[in-house]
Computed example of a mutant assay.
Amino acid sequence: MPRTHLPTQLAPASAWLIEDYRRAAVRSQPAAGGLAQVELPQVPQDELWLVERIVVHCTSSNQTAARLYLDSIAPAGVLDGSRAGNFDVADQGSPIQVPGGSVLICQWTGADNNAVGTMRVQYVVLKQRR
């Protein structure tokens, strides 16, 4: 005799809703040993940030490279980068997702001692709703 499969109710799905459009700017401490670094505050657990635009600038007279990382300075954490770290703009056609609990970090390499790096970020904040 064939088995009959009845539909079962699923738990309510969560949804991401646009909460806000934000901009942030962070400035590094003076560079030492060729490195300058900044990080944005940790993303709240119930949020997802969609990074649409990033501008990096460094006051170094030497040419710098800038790399964007998620959570840690490690090859597995690289999100984006530029060989023109003294000034460059990344206008993301496909936004970078930064999930809740994560930290966005920018590091400049090749900087003169005492050079300062600045990162400006434009992003959409999504809030999780149940």
Rank of each mutant, 00 (worst) to 15 (best):
Glu39Cys: 06
Pro2Thr: 14
Ser94Thr: 13
Pro95Lys: 11
Leu35Ala: 01
Pro2Ile: 15
Leu6Asn: 11
Arg3Leu: 15
Pro44Ile: 06
Ala74Met: 08
Pro75Gln: 13
Ser61Trp: 01
Met119Ile: 12
Gln29Ser: 09
Arg83Met: 09
Asn113Trp: 00
Gly33Cys: 05
His5Leu: 12
Gln122Pro: 00
Val55Tyr: 04
Thr59Tyr: 02
Trp49Gln: 12
Pro30Thr: 06
Val103Gln: 12
Leu6Arg: 12
Pro2Trp: 11
Ala32Gly: 04
Tyr21Trp: 09
Cys58Gly: 10
Asp112Thr: 09
Asn114Val: 09
Ile73Trp: 03
Gly34Lys: 06
Arg130Ala: 15
Ser102Gln: 01
Arg23His: 13
Leu50Ile: 10
Arg83Glu: 03
Asp80Cys: 01
Leu17Asn: 12
His57Glu: 13
Thr4Trp: 06
Val124Met: 09
Pro99Leu: 02
Gly100Gln: 10
Val116Arg: 03
Asp20Glu: 14
Gln42Val: 07
Ile105Pro: 05
Trp16Phe: 15
Met119Gly: 05
Arg129His: 14
Thr64Glu: 11
Val43Ile: 08
Ser72Ala: 14
Ala13His: 10
Leu17Thr: 10
Val103Asp: 02
Ala84Trp: 10
Val43Met: 06
Ala84Arg: 08
Thr64Gly: 11
Thr109Tyr: 01
His57Asn: 10
Pro2Lys: 15
Leu70Tyr: 00
Gly100Cys: 07
Gly77Asp: 07
Thr8Tyr: 12
Ser14Gln: 14
Cys106Tyr: 07
Gln97Ala: 09
Arg23Glu: 15
Ile54Thr: 15
Gln97Asn: 05
His57Phe: 09
Thr59Cys: 04
Ala111Thr: 04
Trp16Asn: 08
Val103His: 08
Leu17Ser: 10
Arg3Asn: 14
Ile54Asn: 06
Asn86Ile: 03
Ala24Asp: 15
Val38Pro: 10
Glu39Val: 00
Lys127Asp: 14
Val55Pro: 00
Pro95Asn: 03
His5Ile: 11
Leu104Ser: 00
Ala25Asp: 07
Ser61Gly: 07
Ser94Glu: 14
Val55Gly: 00
Arg67Tyr: 05
Val98Ile: 15
Lys127Leu: 14
Cys58Ala: 09
Gln9Trp: 07
Arg27Phe: 10
Pro95His: 09
Thr109Val: 05
Asp46Tyr: 13
Ala31Thr: 04
Thr64Ile: 11
Leu79Ser: 01
Gly101Leu: 04
Arg23Val: 12
Ile54His: 05
Ala32Leu: 05
Leu50Gln: 14
Ser61His: 06
Val26Gln: 12
Val89Pro: 07
Arg3Trp: 03
Val26Asn: 07
Ala32Glu: 05
Ala11Gln: 11
Ala31Asn: 04
Asn113Ser: 07
Gly93Gln: 06
Val78Trp: 00
Cys58Asn: 15
Gly34Ile: 01
Glu47Ala: 10
Pro75Val: 12
Thr4Cys: 06
Ala66Gly: 00
Ala115Arg: 02
Arg120Gln: 10
Asp71Phe: 02
Leu48Ser: 07
Leu50Arg: 15
Arg27Gln: 12
Thr118His: 04
Asp88Lys: 02
Ile96Asp: 00
Val26His: 06
Ser94Pro: 00
Ser61Val: 07
Gln29Trp: 08
Thr59Met: 01
Trp108Val: 01
Met1Ser: 15
Ile73Arg: 06
Arg120Thr: 06
Ser14Arg: 14
Pro44Lys: 07
Arg53Tyr: 10
Asp88Glu: 13
Pro30Leu: 07
Lys127Tyr: 10
Val38Thr: 14
